[in-house]
Structure formats: structure tokens, C-alpha cells
């Protein structure tokens, strides 16, 4: 026993290191903080409260970027407004002709962004509405420009959005012009990537990318961004496609949360298939 105590005292630094590293790995296997349930709500609420207290502090870089993007948006909107009026007339006439069912617009919840964590590659935004305002985890968030992300945490008064520039982002998307499907992911660059698009697929620079109807997490036909680069890499069957998000995240101040949730039965089914071991799936 004495030898054991001497051993522990002598190597306490290494024993502590090993224990703490094992504990860290155990925590990592435990997974995301969202699994902590109510504790998560307390953290989201506390951080949200602090962020709202500091929301008045201006960020000159963001303000400059916001001004520039607003000017650009204003110009685009005035052009699009004229086109829109013309398209409405044409659309109404075509709908009548084809007797298409009227598209039901999803209700939106307007929120203000009170804090952004876009540092050290942790890209989240905190909004000033939570479960009391009807916000639920899994809801999609948009602006007038396009898709912002998804709600991943809520407290009674605050919500946390996981932005597109996040390593956990996986969105089923399609190229509007050619109906080519792919998966939107972020790989640490300024732009996001459209993955799993074969080399033979018809994708061009400038193509509009929307959420796919195959997406089990997002409503379909929400603008994600525009293709800015298409390259064919050697020794790869797929194209490397970069997409510029339609939303300017540096000047994000208001977002709309879509009051729509994906079908839980579908998600549960797909998740259970994803969790099944590959050998079992091959059977």
C-alpha cells in the first residue's frame, strides 16, 4: 500500500494527465452540448443575456460591410421589383392556365440578432426570441437574401442559430438551372462547397443554388447562394464547386425563423439508418 501511495505521489502529474485526457475523450464521445438538455438552456440564456447587454457596442468593420451590402441590396431590389411586378402578372396567368395549386407560404417569426460568435471557427448567432416566442430547435432561419442556418439551441427568451459557415452544416441542395443535386458543406473557406456533384453534371459559375426538395431538415427552394467556381480535380469523380452564400453574415442583424419543422418520423428513420453499422447496411 505504501509503495502504491509512493508511486501515485511520484507520478501524480502523469496520472492526472492520463485521467483528464481519458475524461476529455469520454466527454467528446458524449457528444454535443445540446444533449445536456436543461443545462444547455441555462447556458444559452446566460450567454444570451450577456450578449444582449453588449449588443449596443458598435462593430465598425461590420457596420462598413453592412452599409456596402445595403447599398448593393437596394440597387438589386429596385431592379428586381420591376421584374417581380412583371413576373407576378405572368405567373398569375400561367397558374390559371395550368390550374396549379396555390403555393402556401410558411409563416415567419421575425427576430433580432443580439450576438454573433463568428470567432475561432465557431459560427453561431444568438437571437432575441426563444421557446416563449415559438422558436423550436430544428427550425430554419432566413433573411430576405436567403438561408442563414438552423436553430440548434433555445432557452425561454433566446435562440442560437448554427450558421452556414459551420463544420456541422450538411444541406441537401440543388442547382436551380440544371436540377443537379448535391450537399452543401463548409470546409473552412470563406465560401461554402457543393459536394457530391459528378464531373458530368451541368454546373456553371453564376448558377443559383437552392435547398433541395430532398432535404429532410429545410423547406425546399430557399436560396443558399451562387456558384462562384467549378473545378475538376485530378483523381476525383466529383467536381469541386464553391458557392458564395447569398446572405452577408458580417452584417446579419435581423433574421426570420420559418415556423416549420421537419417530419420527426422521417428524421428518426433516416437517423436510425445512418447509425446502423455499414456491414449491416450492406446486407
Amino acid at each position: 500500500m505504501r509503495r502504491f501511495i509512493e508511486f501515485v505521489v511520484r507520478y501524480k502529474n502523469y496520472i492526472t494527465l492520463t485521467t483528464l485526457v481519458v475524461m476529455s475523450f469520454a466527454l467528446m464521445s458524449f457528444g454535443e452540448l445540446s444533449r445536456l438538455g436543461g443545462f444547455r438552456a441555462v447556458i444559452v440564456g446566460s450567454i444570451g443575456w450577456v450578449q444582449s447587454a453588449f449588443a449596443w457596442v458598435p462593430n465598425p468593420v461590420a457596420l462598413k460591410s453592412e452599409n456596402a451590402s445595403l447599398r448593393e441590396l437596394n440597387l438589386q431590389l429596385s431592379i428586381e421589383s420591376a421584374r417581380f411586378r412583371q413576373a407576378m402578372v405572368e405567373n398569375g396567368r400561367l397558374r390559371k392556365m395550368l390550374q396549379l395549386p396555390q403555393h402556401t407560404e410558411m409563416p415567419l417569426i421575425a427576430t433580432d440578432v443580439i450576438g454573433k460568435t463568428t470567432t475561432e471557427l465557431r459560427n453561431f448567432a444568438t437571437i432575441n426570441r426563444g421557446t416563449e416566442g415559438g422558436i423550436v430547435e430544428g427550425m430554419a432561419c432566413i433573411t430576405d437574401a436567403g438561408l442563414v442556418g438552423m436553430i440548434v439551441g433555445t432557452s425561454p427568451k433566446y435562440g442560437v442559430i448554427r450558421l452556414l459557415h459551420n463544420r456541422d452544416t450538411r444541406i441537401a441542395a440543388r442547382v436551380y438551372r440544371s436540377n443537379v443535386d448535391g450537399i452543401i458543406q463548409w470546409e473552412g473557406e470563406e465560401q461554402i462547397s457543393l459536394k457530391d456533384v459528378p464531373r458530368t453534371a451541368d454546373v456553371k459559375v453564376g448558377d443559383l443554388v437552392l435547398t433541395s426538395r430532398f432535404s429532410s431538415r429545410f423547406p425546399s427552394n430557399i436560396v443558399i447562394g451562387y456558384v462562384t467556381s467549378v473545378t475538376d480535380e485530378e483523381n476525383s469523380l466529383f467536381r469541386k464547386i464553391l458557392v458564395e452564400p447569398a446572405v452577408d453574415f458580417s452584417s446579419l442583424s435581423q433574421v426570420f425563423v420559418i415556423d416549420w419543422l421537419p417530419d420527426p418520423e422521417r428524421i428518426a428513420l433516416e437517423d436510425s439508418l445512418m447509425r446502423r453499422p455499414s456491414t449491416e447496411r450492406r446486407r
Partner: peptide
């Protein structure tokens, strides 16, 4: 920091421990 930032629990703990 893992708890405050919403990062994967244990990732910062491991790196900062070492």
C-alpha cells in the same frame, strides 16, 4: 469554455489539459 461556447464537450478540455 466548451460549455460557454457550445463547442464539442471535451475538445477544448483535452487541448488545454495537454
Amino acid at each position: 469554455y466548451d460549455v460557454a461556447s457550445g463547442d464539442v464537450l471535451g475538445s477544448n478540455a483535452l487541448a488545454k489539459t495537454v
